[in-house]
């Protein structure tokens, strides 16, 4: 195996609040190889976005960081944002500057990180926009964000992020605000560019369908911790953490079946008042006494780990 582009080693992030310390991310470890897509899956508040912001170095100074973030085997703080690693956010309108045209914003990335002259940078920006499948890129490059549709703006963000051929691209719910047909276009575009440039992608999402279609590896997060990690096909075929099992059952399916959804009772715990031991235990139908102790993320099958005392869950079925 080549050196991973990104490696998180026991990352934790805490925020001091008036009501106490919020442990947003705790002991998270994973890595991404060049050209691979890792999906980080979970619901609101699970820590997936905070993890991405930590990698980008975009957390406020008050955040308390622990553990290590390695980029190409070196401390990620030495990596250059924009050139080595880039990020695409959910809402492109708030990430684009309304006062500059699409072309100027992509060109600026190229001037800054690749040292291109203004004219050459603008030409390269138009080229990038057309690679990001923006039709009539020459004209669109001269338009302002408000003149573009949501899907078009997200393509501009992707063009900007990929302009300098970063080794790592972090995408935080890049298609959540978009319609389903546009979402399909953006995901296909990301795949194409990834294959072309060998950029590694970390996709942060709540959409298991997108993950099943596109990701190589998956890390499932719950209440700040990784509860299951596996190659995507394996995770969907034999999920080993009860939370993953519940999530898969909670999503309604396109292929019929109108029975009750396997909803997970209750709600995500208050980050200021986390249950001791396994954080999913209060909602887990498989919980037992030892779940009061925190379960380690341990390998249950080759390359497949789960943080659950009862994993592999096949034991539950055999009983």
């Amino acid at each position: 195996m080549s050196t991973p582009v990104l490696e998180l080693d026991n990352l934790s992030v805490g925020f001091a609040t008036d009501r106490g310390l919020v442990r947003a991310v705790e002991a998270v470890s994973f890595s991404v190889a060049p050209g691979q897509m890792l999906a980080v899956v979970g619901e609101s508040g699970c820590g997936k976005s905070v993890t991405a912001l930590a990698v980008m170095g975009l957390l406020p100074d008050s955040a308390q960081l622990g553990g290590r973030i390695l980029f190409d085997g070196r401390d990620a703080r030495e990596a250059q944002r924009g050139r080595d690693l880039a990020m695409v956010f959910q809402e492109p309108m708030t990430s684009l500057n309304p006062a500059f045209t699409a072309g100027e914003q992509v060109a600026e990335a190229l001037r800054r990180h690749r040292g291109l002259a203004p004219r050459a940078a603008f030409d390269a920006a138009v080229e990038m926009l057309s690679r990001a499948q923006i039709p009539d890129a020459e004209r669109r490059a001269r338009q302002y964000p408000h003149q573009l549709s949501g899907g078009m703006r997200q393509r501009v963000m992707i063009a900007m992020a990929l302009a300098c051929r970063p080794r790592l691209l972090l995408c935080d719910e890049p298609t959540t605000a978009l319609d389903v047909t546009v979402q399909a276009q953006i995901m296909a575009l990301l795949d194409e560019l990834r294959q072309e440039t060998g950029t590694a992608v970390v996709l942060i999402t709540h959409d298991l369908g997108v993950v099943a279609d596109r990701a190589d590896h998956v890390a499932v997060m719950y209440a700040g911790r990784v509860v299951e990690a596996a190659p995507a096909a394996q995770l969907f075929a034999t999920p080993q953490h009860p939370y993953t099992v519940g999530l898969l059952g909670a999503a309604p399916r396109l292929v019929g079946g109108r029975g009750r959804l396997a909803s997970i009772e209750g709600a995500v715990p208050d980050p200021l008042n986390l249950p001791p031991g396994c954080r999913f235990a209060p909602r887990c139908p498989f919980a037992e006494a030892r779940c009061k102790q925190p379960p380690p993320l341990a390998e249950v099958a080759p390359g497949h780990s789960a943080a659950c005392w009862r994993a592999p869950l096949d034991q539950v079925l055999a009983a």
Partner: peptide, 26 residues
Amino acid sequence: IAPHETETGGERLRRLQAFFTQGTAA
């Protein structure tokens, strides 16, 4: 072509999910 979803989990997953529909044990 009717929509088709990538099959996940099969019978094992259905049996595990039954624990959720029948409410929390414990």
